[in-house]
């Protein structure tokens, strides 16, 4: 039986009220969206905030809106199940819809939100454990200790960004709107991440994510998401790959991109994928050889460490396999790459 530590709870009904509460708490509060990651972490005593500010009752935080310029604006409290089922998202950002459809299991997708998934805490098999378990081991670098059990002698936390939706949002060049009392800023998601597993985001913990904007994609946009996990439901990714591909009018690839997640503290874009595939036509030998090159680039650049369950060796060997399959799925216009 895992009990939550005592805390105060506020359920503001407006964005302004939430910003005031966060400002008054002076860093002593935590934001709770769907709660599917925060509550287990609280039960494991990874955080013990005095106050939780729930976003559940804030008006206007749920919804998917198509803007005049073709951009999609998604409210941070939009449930992952709603993102996955949205025809707008399926049509305009297929990789995001696929990634959202593979987060955890059905109940967690009903509760979990897109904003919460973007702001997910990093995960590590030495960190996401009960207090008793962590105490027995002498704790770790990320919480209460000084030693990293993943990289012996390591001074930098390598807990993994395990948010499935981060990878497609990177390839879609999404931007995030953060607000604080009397302060508002837009941040490209590609600039959000840092390589520090303790807090892998370049924003303060009391900044509130208020919207996620996905710019209009080029005509001929294709996207897919591939996920590797132990069971075909519930589990966090052992590896996640998002692919974006643009096909020109003549059917050849005009641009392509890959992003890997669940490897290190930040999602990683693979360099050189567009060069490997541009000008090739899906279904031809040139395309197949371009896929091989892209997969090898991913293999060289994406190097998992033993931070999440599953051996790093297996996860690394699966990088080119999943990269190739996900690019193929994007070219065909289907996906996700996942058995169930």
């Amino acid at each position: 039986m895992l009990r939550l530590p005592p805390f105060q709870l506020e359920e503001p009904k407006s964005l302004y009220a939430a910003l005031v509460l966060l400002a008054e708490a002076k860093g002593q509060a935590m934001i709770i969206a769907g709660g599917t990651d925060l509550l287990p972490n609280l039960k494991h005593r990874l955080f013990e905030p005095k106050l939780l500010v729930s976003l559940a009752r804030i008006e206007g935080f749920v919804g998917i809106e198509l803007q005049e310029d073709g951009a999609l604006v998604i409210g941070p409290m939009t449930p992952l199940a709603q993102v996955a089922a949205s025809e707008l998202v399926q049509e305009r950002a297929p990789a995001l819809a696929q990634a959202a459809s593979l987060v955890a299991g059905p109940q967690l997708r009903t509760q979990g939100t897109l904003g919460g998934n973007v702001m997910l805490d990093t995960r590590c098999q030495w960190y996401n454990q009960t207090y008793f378990w962590r105490q027995s081991l002498g704790y770790c670098l990320k919480k209460d200790g000084t030693e990293c059990h993943v990289v012996k002698g390591g001074q930098k936390c390598v807990a993994a960004a395990s948010n499935d939706t981060a990878a497609p949002l990177m390839t879609l060049q999404a931007s995030l709107c953060f607000e604080r009392l009397n302060e508002k800023r837009e941040l490209p998601i590609r600039d959000l991440w840092s390589s520090d597993g303790i807090w892998n985001k370049r924003c303060d913990q009391d900044e509130l994510l208020t919207s996620i904007r996905i710019p209009a994609q080029e005509a001929g946009h294709r996207g897919a998401y591939g996920k590797l996990r132990t069971r075909e439901s519930i589990d966090f990714p052992l590896l996640g790959i998002a692919a974006r591909m643009t096909l020109a009018d003549d059917g050849t690839v005009s641009d392509a991109e890959l992003c890997g997640v669940a490897l290190a503290a930040r999602p990683s874009l693979v360099r050189g994928v567009s060069e490997a595939l541009t000008g090739t036509r899906p279904g031809t030998d040139e395309f197949t050889s371009g896929l091989e090159s892209a997969a090898q680039l991913a293999y060289k650049q994406l190097r998992p460490v033993d931070n999440v369950p599953g051996s790093a060796w297996y996860r690394r060997e699966m990088v080119p396999v999943l990269a190739k399959r996900t690019l193929q799925a994007a070219a065909r216009g289907d996906g996700p790459v996942h058995p169930l």
Binding site: L9, E11, I32, G35, T36, L39, P40, L52, S54, A56, A81, P106, Q107, L108, T110, Q111
Partner: peptide, 18 residues
């Protein structure tokens, strides 16, 4: 698992106040 407005949720990860 319980249903909240007809949708399945995990009651162990739902605050009663919510």
């Amino acid at each position: 698992t319980v249903l909240l407005d007809g949708k399945p949720v995990l009651s162990c990860l739902t605050l009663a106040a919510n």
